Simulated scan of single mutants.
Amino acid sequence: MNYDDRQHLVYARARALTPERLTEWLRVFARHAPQRRPLAVLDLGSGTGRFSPALADEFGGPVWGVEPSEHMRAGAEEHAAHPGVTYLSGSATAVPLPDASCDLAVVFLVLQHVRDHAGAAAEIARVLRPGGRVLIRSLFPDRMPELPWYSYFPGARDIDEQVFPRMDPLLETFAAAGLRFVTVERVQERIADSLADYETRLKLRGSSTFERLTEEEIMVGFDALEAAVRAERRPRPVEEESDLLVLERAAD
């Protein structure tokens, strides 16, 4: 996905985290991170830096936000600057950090954009210290949750099942690189306070899945969503589930 084309223009607004959602994700990350402090953190696919400053505050060590998109990285440097964060040009298969330089790698909605999972696994393992951990937030087609927007854009589920990695092959690939399975946690989060708020966010088309839907599918989906918003008498929060996969580099 070329985020330098259109996505960088809307990503920060479409994927903005409320303070409550950010705090909850940090709690989840801290539960599975190594217990020592400070931790040096790789924020792989850091985008516009929506997590990087908070990771520096939470774990106390330097954070390296590695992002291939020039425009996304520029947005992070402008709007998510932090004395403990350095944004670098790089990718999942070419991380510009020394061997054994990180205690924790956060890989948040990234692997669906990576073609060479074996190369990514090898790079992550290379930069992790023994006992370091990888936190992979993703969807896995073999455990696919029923996301709210699939009700209005059924083609989105078909696309996600094609582009997101399956759990078992991914575990085999990462295990071959020396990263062992620890656990997988199903995380539930409130992503909007009402269906109307959810519609507003979706209309920014911040998900890369929109780039693979036809304009007809998008139009029909938003028509259905608008009808649901009009029918909503009492606003209710919109929640969604995803998985956090935890892996660990074996100690020497």
Rank of each mutant, 00 (worst) to 15 (best):
V106H: 04
V107K: 13
F108K: 13
F108V: 00
L109K: 07
L111Q: 09
L111W: 01
Q112H: 15
V114E: 15
V114W: 11
D116Q: 02
A118L: 07
A118T: 11
A118F: 12
A121W: 02
A122M: 10
E123S: 04
I124V: 15
A125L: 04
R126C: 07
R126Q: 09
V127W: 02
P130G: 03
P130V: 07
V134N: 06
L135K: 11
L135Q: 04
R137A: 14
R137L: 12
R137F: 07
S138A: 02
S138Q: 14
L139W: 07
L139R: 04
F140S: 03
P141E: 15
L147W: 14
P148F: 09
Y150R: 08
Y150S: 12
S151Y: 08
P154A: 14
G155H: 12
G155Q: 11
G155N: 08
A156G: 06
A156E: 10
I159C: 04
D160V: 00
Q162R: 15
V163A: 10
F164W: 13
F164Y: 15
F164P: 03
P165S: 06
P165V: 09
P165N: 13
R166G: 14
P169H: 09
L170G: 08
L170H: 11
L171V: 00
L171R: 12
T173S: 10
T173G: 05
T173C: 15
T173A: 11
T173K: 10
T173H: 04
A175H: 12
A175C: 04
A175S: 09
A175W: 12
A175Q: 13
A176Q: 15
A176P: 12
A177M: 07
L179G: 06
V182G: 09
V182K: 09
T183Y: 05
V184I: 14
E185T: 10
E185N: 06
R186E: 14
R186L: 14
R186P: 01
V187Q: 13
R190S: 07
I191E: 09
I191S: 01
A192Y: 09
D193M: 08
L195F: 05
A196K: 05
A196E: 13
D197G: 09
Y198M: 02
Y198V: 03
E199K: 01
T200C: 05
T200G: 12
R201C: 02
K203L: 07
R205I: 05
G206T: 06
S207F: 14
F210A: 09
F210S: 10
R212V: 02
T214F: 07
E216I: 00
E217W: 02
V220Q: 11
F222S: 08
A224E: 15
L225A: 04
L225S: 08
